[in-house]
Design a protein around this nucleic acid. Structure first.
Lengths: 151, 151
DNA sequence: GCTGAAATCACACATTA
DNA sequence: TAATGTGTGATTTCAGC
């Protein structure tokens, strides 16, 4: 399904989506049309989900990243799904992982400042009666941020 | 420095980097050259860091995501930097945050399976004598993964 | 994998507020 | 004067062969 050439293509695209097709073709030692076909197929079968632009988190003014772990009162599928839906609607929530063991969710949130963080927590957690426990760490600096999956 | 038009451009590019310049221009109600100039400038001043391709984490076969919190024995700047450098070299480590309070680092790691996870932990943590404490959660499912900063 | 038509991009220049 | 809009040449994409 995914051969060696596909992998080489993906490895490059993961790191640099702005590369043009013929440069890509050159780097993977294939012809441009072949390369294009592969990319198109990888997109169609869902291996390539989307291409995004990463912005510098500091360039747009100060911002605060927090890692938030939280546990719900009741871990039924309905409650977990409902909470997840709430969380997904918050623009400040960058990532949400349903985990085990430990807390039920780990969130990575990005807000402008401490008041904004507080407002988010209040809106999201205090309002939802079924949050039992919250534990948060504030990121002093983001050392590494890779979106590239190991191939 | 960053005006309303820039913001509109960024909001779109964050979500879709594959959009072409004239479609982008149309959506932000600007001419194509203006749009192109803005994007170029945003890239130059570092607001736009890079464009990447996001792959489906499941499409390439099974994989395991873990959130790993760890504390070092000694929190001197040198030790922290040294650990950070080790971590940055591991392809399986997708994200690394230096946090406070709580543990010293929070990592998001992505590996093929449990043995691979174990090997990583052994390589990274056990080998480095200055890791005091490790706590890991395994992600059952990644609910949300946004790279877009709230504008 | 190659070639050619169609679209797209990128840049210099004129223009306006 | 600084940002916008117009036009043209060069690339790039993408179809058929």
């Amino acid at each position: 399904m995914i051969d060696e050439l596909d992998r080489r293509i993906l490895a490059i695209l993961q790191v640099d989506a702005s590369i043009n097709n013929q440069d890509l073709a050159e780097r993977v030692h294939a012809s441009a049309p072949t390369c294009l076909r592969r990319v198109k197929r990888l997109r169609e079968i869902g291996v390539i989900e989307r291409q995004v632009t990463l912005l510098s988190p500091t360039a747009l003014g100060p911002s605060l990243t927090a890692i938030v772990e939280l546990s719900l009162d009741i871990q039924s599928a309905e409650r977990l799904d409902a909470f997840e839906a709430r969380v997904a609607g918050e623009a400040a929530v960058m990532q949400c992982y349903r985990v085990s063991p430990g807390p039920d969710f780990v969130l990575v949130v990005q807000v402008a400042d401490m008041p904004a963080y507080h407002a988010l927590v209040h809106r999201l957690f205090n309002a939802a009666a079924n949050v039992r426990n919250v534990r948060a760490f504030f990121s002093v600096q983001r050392t590494k941020f890779e979106t590239a999956l190991p191939l």
